[in-house]
């Protein structure tokens, strides 16, 4: 059982968390300017890195959405940030 650090609740079981995709995956703006390819890349293409990853997660029990830096091979968590406390480039529309 792995523990993930929720910035609001602290360390909790991995089963309480939901993966939210790459941090920094910004929605392309401009209804007519965005091509099919750009829209498909935003919707579907993923960094999916082997090693260091920078991801958005949701702690489902408290509803906190946050950014987590972790390693996809050894599963070690480097850091977790609350988005509103300078969590950096999260890809979410504010």
């Amino acid at each position: 059982m792995q523990l993930f650090p929720c910035p609001f609740c602290g360390p909790r079981s991995e089963t309480e968390f939901h993966f939210g995709g790459d941090a920094g995956n910004r929605r392309p703006e401009g209804f007519r300017a965005v091509t099919d390819g750009e829209w498909a890349a935003y919707l579907h293409d993923r960094n999916n890195p082997r090693g260091a990853a920078n991801e958005i997660w949701m702690h489902m029990t408290c509803g906190e959405v946050f950014r987590m830096e972790r390693d996809t091979v050894h599963h070690g968590v480097a850091q977790a940030f609350a988005l509103l406390e300078g969590g950096g480039d999260d890809g979410l529309a504010h």
Binding site: M1, Q2, S13, E14, T15, F17, H18, F19, N48, R50, G51, A53, E55, T72, V73, H74, H75
Partner: peptide, 13 residues
């Protein structure tokens, strides 16, 4: 497993 991973082990839940 519900956690994206390249670790060929698997998690317990």
């Amino acid at each position: 497993d519900r956690v994206p991973s390249y670790g060929q082990r698997g998690n317990l839940p």
